[in-house]
């Protein structure tokens, strides 16, 4: 368990360090995630070494954002004032993302399978 925590927090720490040194506009946690993926890929880290802790974090992800949910109490007025722009633009944009992602993937897949046939 200690090794599991050390690896995940270590990746996060290196991510923070990279952000501090380079000033890159990317969250440290994303850099940490990419580092972990790369180290798994080149085999420096085995999945078993982190699996327990990463499963714990991901299975309980929703619980960790309860405090953020509670902080919403300060923004009721703001949300009420812009309720429709927020809900309508977010919903329509979600339809756009669904359709664009689905279409692009489906089209490219068809093209790829046609190429392999011919």
């Amino acid at each position: 368990m200690i090794r599991q925590c050390a690896i995940i927090f270590g990746c996060l720490a290196i991510g923070e360090l990279i952000v501090m040194i380079t000033g890159i506009k990317l969250p440290s946690s994303i850099i940490g995630m990419l580092l972990l993926t790369i180290m798994l890929k080149i085999g420096w880290i085995k999945v078993d070494w982190v699996k327990g802790f990463s499963d714990f974090l991901l299975n309980n992800l929703a619980f960790f954002f309860v405090p953020a949910g509670v902080s919403l109490m300060f923004y009721f007025n703001l949300i009420k004032a812009s309720f429709w722009p927020i809900v309508v633009s977010a919903s329509i944009s979600t339809v756009v993302v669904l359709v664009v992602t689905g279409w692009v993937h489906q089209l490219m897949r068809k093209r790829q399978s046609n190429e392999t046939v011919s």
Partner: peptide, 27 residues
């Protein structure tokens, strides 16, 4: 709220390592 938030920071803290942990399913 600031008092409550100060006390549950431990919970929120886990959000960042949770994003790092997504590296496992990604791989």
């Amino acid at each position: 709220y600031p008092i409550y938030h100060e006390h549950v920071r431990l919970i929120e803290f886990f959000l960042k390592p949770a994003v790092v942990a997504m590296g496992v399913p990604l791989y």
